[in-house]
Design a protein around this nucleic acid. Structure first.
Lengths: 269, 269
DNA sequence: CAGCCGCATTGATCTGAATCAATTTGGCGA
DNA sequence: TCGCCAAATTGATTCAGATCAATGCGGCTG
């Protein structure tokens, strides 16, 4: 840790703290955990390693740091961004869902994000968006415009963001395919495979999953109802493709069978 | 036009031409128009103005140019990218659809792109992608990796690409919302409003649209069938929200009514 | 560890959009 | 200008998944 940054950090944490109080006052849903505050240096450090280029000057490093706001978000709490311009978010710890709100309380989960992910929350236009914690989270938030202005001449940073955005886009397109053209059972299979890739643990031929999201979340992500998701999981269990333990544990026993049921392009490499 | 570039251009066009012949031989679907070849300088110039930074050195400019391949794609012709790594595409002229192929010839249109748009075609993984011309097109294609390597230290270029990718992502998320949570009539209304924004011509209180895509394309984009799209258009016509002229002309007579039927967040700014 | 609450599962019925089928129409070439 | 063909419209029926309803069970609290 660079010693000359300590004083600056303390100042920043003060700023952070007031911003946090401010946020909580404006938004009752955001009830950040006080003890989470100490995570700011750690979270920012992880963010810096992932996104900021290694040879960034200390001054620039500090400027990015002063732009960051830590939000410690308890499970099921949501960050709303009404009226705010678009935000850049880094998941320092935990797991989140990005929810779009359409009319009549019809919500669509647009994406899940896990530790280390970076993503943007669009400005409100035809829909409003919120970020909701699936587990207790430490998030770093930046105003996207301010961040990009600061990164204007830092090509490596822009490149990192571009790569991140491109994979978000790829995932979003795959979701589009699932929602547009797939049956309920295919969607559930696709979901399980994707989660296996992102947060699964390989064990022998199986993949162990500890899902942080509820059946409702899965349903809202796949454009289905909880009942349909549940039925499809039961069918997969009966077919021997998966096993379930408790409410959140799922073992992908037969990944081949899942892939066959996912409606993927045949003979995919 | 910088005079010292002429010789280089001629050389490049030769390269371009052989690449084009090569492409056509490898892929019978790609039957480029010969007379389109002369559009390369013009198309690249437009691309440069949009994406490359103004103060790029001539040498760098030429390097980007040598990476570009012009593909003149006739209406209904498709560019397949099997086995290719991901591509960056600029629409110099015309309109395209980006199609994802899932199993059993179920295709989902992932996005439409129009003159001046830049977008990436992902590498094949669970799905294969193709770019299909809605009208006769001039496209510039780049290997995405090569392009990004070349742009590695050109922050303004990366910034342009990032902005483009971010808006693609926003549009894709909005499509996700539509496919996940909206009824057929809402989807059609959303589609018409979005096309009005992108390629419509305001005339008085109305918006004139000349749709380059067929009902089948609309259906494949919205996750519906042609019949359902047709029925919903008829309903909107009866309600007075739109008028249709011929097969491709649509007048958005009452944008307010369309918005009300689009299932957007109420009291959206 | 007992009891409760909310999530999840399972079952019965309903419905919006798909599918199947028959016309109609617009646009193009002879 | 006519006639043809593909695209679009309109209608009848079917079906996947939503909705409504009841029961089961995991996990947390006292």
């Amino acid at each position: 840790m660079r010693p000359r940054m300590v004083a600056a950090l303390e100042a920043l944490l003060e700023i952070e703290f007031s911003a946090f109080i401010d946020l909580r006052q404006r938004n009752p849903l955001c009830e950040a955990r006080l003890e989470g505050m100490t995570n700011f240096p750690e979270a920012f450090d992880r963010f810096a390693r992932k996104i900021l280029s290694a040879n960034l000057s200390d001054a620039a490093h500090l400027r990015f740091q002063s732009l960051a706001r830590l939000v410690a978000l308890d499970r099921d709490r949501a960050l709303e961004f009404e009226g705010t311009s678009s935000q850049l978010i880094f998941v320092g710890h935990g797991a989140t869902k990005l929810v779009a709100h359409a009319s009549e309380a019809r919500d669509q989960i647009v994406a899940f994000h896990f530790v280390g992910d970076v993503f943007t929350v669009p400005e409100q236009d035809n829909y409003s968006y919120s970020v909701c914690a699936l587990r207790d989270c430490d998030l770093l938030t930046f105003g996207a415009n301010e961040f990009l202005d600061l990164a204007a001449s830092e090509a490596p940073i822009l490149r990192h963001l571009l790569d991140n955005t491109t994979s978000s886009l790829r995932r979003c397109r795959e979701k589009t395919i699932a929602l547009g053209r797939k049956t309920a059972s295919e969607r559930v299979a696709v979901f399980l495979l994707a989660m296996g890739e992102r947060i699964g643990v390989r064990k022998g031929g199986s993949v162990l999953l500890e899902l942080p999201m509820s059946r409702r979340d899965i349903a809202e992500s796949l454009g289905l109802t909880i009942e349909t998701v549940s039925r499809q999981l039961s069918l997969l269990r009966e077919a021997g493709a998966i096993a379930t333990t408790g409410r959140s544990g799922i073992v992908l026993r037969d990944v081949g069978m899942l892939k066959a049921r996912a409606g993927y392009l045949r003979d995919a490499a």
